[in-house]
Write a protein that binds this DNA or RNA. Sequence first.
DNA 1: CGCCTTGTTGAGCCCTTTCAAAGGATGTGG
DNA 2: CCACATCCTTTGAAAGGGCTCAACAAGGCG
Lengths: 240, 240
Amino acid sequence: MRVRETQSPAMLRLSRLAGLTATDLALLEPGMLTGHLARSRREILREGEEITGAQIIVSGWAVRARLLADGRRQFLSFLLPGDLIGHCRHSRPLAVSTIVALTDVRLCAAPAPSTSASLAEAYAVSQALDEAYLLSHITRLGRLNAQERIGDLMLEFHERLTLAGLVTHNGFEMPLTQEALGDALGLTSVHINRMLQLMRREGDLTLKGGRLILSDPPVLARKVGRAPIHVTANPPQAEA
Amino acid sequence: MRVRETQSPAMLRLSRLAGLTATDLALLEPGMLTGHLARSRREILREGEEITGAQIIVSGWAVRARLLADGRRQFLSFLLPGDLIGHCRHSRPLAVSTIVALTDVRLCAAPAPSTSASLAEAYAVSQALDEAYLLSHITRLGRLNAQERIGDLMLEFHERLTLAGLVTHNGFEMPLTQEALGDALGLTSVHINRMLQLMRREGDLTLKGGRLILSDPPVLARKVGRAPIHVTANPPQAEA
DNA sequence: CGCCTTGTTGAGCCCTTTCAAAGGATGTGG
DNA sequence: CCACATCCTTTGAAAGGGCTCAACAAGGCG
């Protein structure tokens, strides 16, 4: 199953998760073109609302967040191109977190999994990955120090965006403000700032104008103690 | 659907999640009696292993954990009576975390969801709850201070054990050592100890001989800023 | 050009950790 | 029933990592 050059990042990701057929791609393609747009900072889904239908992130970044009564907030996970929203298997599900667009986000309806077994498999693998990354996030917050948290999160982005074909020479668009990074990593933006400077000085990364470059991902991974993530015994086609 | 007095905590929990029928209960009951035992401190599942079959915790406490290369470890979530292990919807799934018994744990095989729609619904709701608690755990670690973390976790136990009928007069068995609490909450056992003493002095709780009593759950919930958790628009039958 | 968001910097404080040691429980074997 | 080992809890003193509260610089953008 060769992946075509012309595929969008979202389709590339999904097809890599479960080896989608040409038929599956044909199912996905129309939605990719017709989906709707959520402007930056808009809520895509609000905690406690009933979930209506599953969607796919076509482009842009969004975030799942919990908002505390006193104004504190915590980012739970990031949603990148090819990620799924609102897949539930029980009746009348409620959203357990709010989803906010961090950039302009293009969304489309996800074809029902019942239409294709391989598509259903891709959804299931995607969801398993979601959960694995949630668990990593817990470990990050519970046991890593500030510098390790930042490095670990950047490596997660690198890994996930690579799957969607959005990484070149270890560099990729990373549209998060330092305050957003703080909300994700349980730190203040002030401290994020200082640690980023330190990591730049130590040669771990470059971050300028919304573009992040990791100097040497494997070295950074060793430095922050990051282990690779696997959810399937059949590994997805590795990035070229 | 009246719940019988004789039900085990595990069955009580599952039947409350989706209003199980007598047929479902009959499906579950044999397993509850024949399941096998995992001794305290034993691994029930190891990260990276292939998952074989779904199981139900009949009694006892277990924990999902990530172990870091340098010996640090982080508890991801607790598994209490009636909780499910190893439900996956994609082919050849791998365990993304290690599961360790914290007490002696009785386990049984979970009947296949295909045998009953209401049972499948109970599994799905259970899994949605799992995820909701994972998200709460992230918020706990990212945004709460030590005292809030402890209070919030104890309220989670209170809530979940109530569903299984294991709480009387706001008191329940809580077999975690202070070191285990530290591993769950991203704190050292020394600090857990000091904060527990503080909370005892402030009249929030009593903890002695493995039994925890919350003086006033709603008051504590307000104090630590805890919001209730809902995953379904049809609320489960509330505890009597 | 001026506004508004984002990034940068400093000083002091506070929550949590570290390191060490002692005290209580609990269980096992003699 | 005591001796002993092991695990768990408790306590103290000192250090450190990250926070707070400013204030200011630097970019985008209309």
